[in-house]
């Protein structure tokens, strides 16, 4: 399995950043950056990373099972994450969540039939002073109104 030249370069430099013999430390960053290209934690990806770090696939699975951002299945081209934790809740983040579910006809960690959009109700994303907040893939959007959310979804559907 090969990755883009940029990612291969990142991986090549990564090993030197940790003490000799402790290269398992690369595991989480490798998986996260690889996920950006592969989409989710495929068997092939897990085996490839295990091979490169000289660890067992079991050790990779342990980690993949633990971390929320490591996707166990293919998600949408755009992953829409809506925070409903306390500071966002106080600014009606829960209503944004309900609205998105209804509009898209999907629920938590589900993908639209056309594969374009997936939805996740996320825990605090560190945007509490700019609530209610969402993340579109890695991009933050702050003070999101219901109208903005509608427009975002409509635009994504058309894209």
């Amino acid at each position: 399995m090969t990755f883009s030249p940029e990612l291969e370069k990142r991986f090549a430099e990564m090993a030197a950043k940790y003490p000799e013999g402790r290269q398992k430390a690369c595991l989480i960053p490798m998986l996260m950056y690889a996920q950006d290209e592969v989409g989710h934690m495929t068997e092939e990806l897990k085996e490839e990373v295990a091979k490169r770090l000289n660890i067992s696939v079991l050790e990779v699975n342990e980690v993949v099972g633990y971390y929320t951002m490591m996707r166990k299945k293919r998600m949408g081209e755009t992953h829409l994450q809506i925070c409903t934790n306390i500071s966002c809740l106080l600014w009606d983040g829960d209503q944004l969540w309900e609205r998105a579910c209804q509009k898209l006809g999907i629920g938590h960690n589900e993908v639209t039939a056309d594969g374009k959009i997936s939805l996740e109700e996320v825990e605090c994303i560190g945007a509490c002073s700019w609530a209610p907040a969402i993340q579109v893939n890695y991009d933050f959007q702050h003070h999101v109104t219901p109208e903005q959310l509608d427009k975002l979804i409509d635009d994504l559907r058309k894209a």
Binding site: A25, L31, M32, V63, Y67, M69, C124
Partner: peptide
């Protein structure tokens, strides 16, 4: 990190750093 509040606890963070 990769999405785990627990890793803000210092010893869990160190485990996470070690992969």
């Amino acid at each position: 990190g990769a999405g785990a509040y627990e890793c803000g606890e210092e010893s869990a963070l160190l485990e996470s750093l070690e992969g």
